[in-house]
Amino acid sequence: MRKLKIIEHISLDGVIQHSDDGDGFPYSDWTAPYRSPAGRDAVLAAHGEHFDLLLGRRTYDSWSGFWPKAPSSPMADRLNAATKFIATHHPESLEWGPSQGLGPDIAADIRRLKSQDGPDLVLSGSSTLTSTLLEQGLVDEVLLIVYPVLLGTGKRFFAEGTPARAFELISSEAMATGNMLNTYKVAGPVQAG
Rank of each mutant, 00 (worst) to 15 (best):
L134T: 02
E141C: 00
L123T: 06
A159E: 15
D140M: 12
I145G: 08
S126H: 02
G152F: 09
E135G: 13
G154Y: 03
T132W: 00
L151I: 13
P148L: 06
A159S: 14
G125W: 10
L151C: 07
L138K: 08
G161M: 00
L133G: 05
T128S: 10
G161P: 01
A159H: 11
V142Y: 11
E135H: 07
F158R: 04
F157C: 03
V146Y: 04
F158V: 01
F158K: 05
L123P: 02
L134F: 15
L143H: 07
P148W: 04
E135M: 06
E160T: 03
L150E: 01
F157S: 00
K155T: 04
F158G: 00
L151E: 12
R156T: 14
S131R: 10
Y147E: 00
L123A: 05
L123M: 09
G125C: 06
G125Y: 11
L138S: 13
L151S: 13
S126R: 11
V146Q: 10
A166C: 04
T162N: 08
S127W: 07
V146S: 15
G154M: 00
T130C: 03
L144M: 15
G137Y: 07
F158Q: 05
S124F: 10
E160Y: 02
L134I: 11
T132F: 10
R156F: 15
L143K: 07
P148S: 05
A159M: 14
F158Y: 12
R165V: 01
T128E: 15
A166H: 12
L129C: 11
A159Y: 03
E135K: 06
Y147V: 05
I145Y: 04
L129I: 08
P163F: 00
S124C: 02
L144R: 12
T128I: 07
E135Y: 03
